[in-house]
């Protein structure tokens, strides 16, 4: 296996182990992590960015000054002399090459980003959980087979895998984008959940439930799964950041929605290439948005991960 895959596996396993190491899992683990997080400035910055982004994405259609699909500046576009209209009253960032308001497109674009990120993560989480539960609760041959598949997926760089999936899809679009990104998240969640479930499986309270004669289904869903979810939730916030960047990357390369009436940051970035020398602001604004939002999720996720990891405590 490649060292790339190894490194990713190690990182996932560390997080899975972090949750099971704690002497009193569950209640106090989350509680003690939260106590540390509350005073962590990095976490608070990440949280602020994330919350601001989510609020913005939800209310953007109402606060956007113009319809992002309409072209009020169309008559200002001069393909030969001035293809991109500059700022003017009512249009603080100016327009794009089709005369649409840039600010409105950036604002509404956050929506697309959020939708793709959230749905890709949810589907990835569900898929990963299904595999993880399968491997973690049955163990043995089932575990071996599932985990070998997962390892192979992890050893392929995730963006490359997403390209392949998106390019193979019948027609590009938002759904394809979500599915492609969801699939690359599946092995991460699967390995993570399986790791922490195996930790739970070896734990005394699961053995106690077995000794009591509790049915396997109840042991898995009532004891193992709820106690394994901590690291999965942390990973989900990290994955959201990755999903947003990956979605932007795929759209940038034209594998996203071909319909440009629905603005999307990556797609806007991609379209700005033509004008990058004369009008770099067309690229800078969407790129900044992507960076800031991804940073917000990453700061939040990383500090949560650190708070959960006993090795970094105190």
């Amino acid at each position: 296996m490649t060292s790339y895959g190894d490194r990713r596996r190690e990182r996932i396993d560390d997080l899975a182990a972090a949750a099971s190491v704690d002497e009193t899992p569950g209640v106090s683990l989350i509680a003690s992590a939260w106590r540390r997080l509350r005073r962590d400035p990095i976490f608070l910055v990440g949280l602020a960015i994330t919350v601001a982004f989510i609020i913005l994405a939800v209310i953007s259609p109402w606060i956007a000054p113009h319809d992002p699909a309409s072209a009020p500046l169309l008559d200002k576009v001069r393909p030969q002399t001035n293809p991109v209209p500059g700022p003017e009253p009512g249009f603080p960032l100016g327009g794009d090459d089709r005369g649409r308001d840039l600010l409105s497109r950036l604002l509404v674009g956050s929506r697309q980003t959020l939708v793709v990120g959230v749905f890709a993560t949810i589907f990835g989480l569900l898929g990963g959980m299904a595999l993880g539960i399968l491997a973690g609760s049955f163990g043995g041959a089932v575990d071996s087979i599932v985990m070998r598949i997962v390892d192979v997926m992890l050893s392929v760089p995730s963006l490359l895998l997403a390209f392949t999936i998106a390019a193979l899809a019948a027609r590009p679009g938002q759904t394809t984008l979500i599915i492609a990104i969801a699939i690359i998240q599946v092995p991460i969640f699967a390995r993570l959940l399986r790791g922490s479930m195996l930790g739970q499986r070896a734990s005394d309270h699961v053995l106690a439930a077995r000794a009591l004669g509790v049915k396997r289904r109840a042991i898995v869903f009532r004891h193992m799964l709820p106690n394994s979810m901590g690291p999965v939730i942390v990973q989900a916030t990290l994955v959201l950041a990755i999903a947003i960047i990956d979605a932007a990357a795929l759209s940038f390369l034209g594998l996203g929605s071909p319909d440009d009436r629905q603005p999307e940051w990556g797609q806007m970035l991609g379209r700005s290439q033509e004008f990058i020398y004369d009008h770099p602001h067309l690229a800078v604004y969407p790129a900044l948005c992507i960076i800031v939002v991804a940073l917000g999720f990453t700061l939040m996720g990383e500090s949560m991960r650190e708070a959960l990891d006993p090795k970094t405590r105190r």
Binding site: T24, P25, G26, S203, D204, A209, R222, H223, P226, N227
Partner: peptide, 9 residues
């Protein structure tokens, strides 16, 4: 270990 053998939840 009575703590670890009881599910904290």
């Amino acid at each position: 270990d009575p703590m670890s053998s009881l599910d904290p939840r």
